[in-house]
């Protein structure tokens, strides 16, 4: 996140241009009942926002701030701390290859190299058609089945080059 984002979040932009879906609003009500104050609903509401809007833009942060009766900067403060609230558009599939020690010694670098070659992109990039983003991440808690990767919600473990090809070719 850069200076532009911080500026954008402090600016009064046209409000009311985005809103959760009906289902989202219902889920919001349920979330709020689980906490003694609105601020504590921050992470669940941001997860919901990610589900609804994919990217946590300054506009989304302002919307969330409005829902939780907070200054937008409080939401920005949180969003910028965690890794699961992307502020920039990502591919339809986000591949996260675990690169921490157990995976590293079992071949994580070769996994990354193989995917890079196959997709023609480097870590941090998205394929031209906007379909796949490749990331290298810290320990995903699947060390006994290394090397591994996560694609969107799912874990893929005990990877080999053949298995990676199969998985990637299977992405629609």
């Amino acid at each position: 996140m850069n200076e532009e984002t911080t500026t954008a979040i402090n600016e009064e932009t046209a409000s009311g241009t985005i809103e959760f879906s009906g289902e989202g609003l219902q889920e919001l009500e349920e979330i709020l009942q689980c906490y003694p104050n609105k601020k504590a609903a921050m992470l669940p509401v941001l997860h919901l926002a990610r589900q609804e809007f994919k990217t946590i833009t300054p506009e989304v942060m302002q919307y969330v701030a409005g829902l939780l009766d907070l200054d937008p900067i409080r939401v920005f403060d949180v969003v910028s701390f965690y890794t699961l609230f992307p502020s920039e558009k990502e591919g339809q599939y986000v591949i996260q290859v675990c690169a921490t020690l157990s995976c590293d010694v079992m071949g994580a670098r070769s996994v990354v190299n193989h995917i890079e070659k196959k997709l023609g992109i480097e870590v941090g990039q998205t394929t031209e058609d906007g379909k796949i983003t490749l990331k290298k991440v810290e320990c995903l808690g699947s060390c006994g089945t290394a090397p591994m990767m996560q694609i969107n919600d799912d874990y893929y473990e005990n990877l080999t080059e053949e298995r990676i090809d199969e998985i990637l070719d299977g992405l629609e």
Binding site: K39, A41, M42, P44, D77, V78, F81, C139
Partner: peptide, 29 residues
């Protein structure tokens, strides 16, 4: 007893109990 599942958002430090509590309260961990 009401049990609520609360999802973190990708920060190792939130496994430390007071970092976790800050995060649970809707702040940086």
């Amino acid at each position: 007893l009401k049990v609520v599942n609360h999802r973190g958002a990708g920060a190792y430090i939130c496994g430390e109990e007071t970092g976790l509590l800050e995060s649970l309260e809707g702040k940086r961990g």
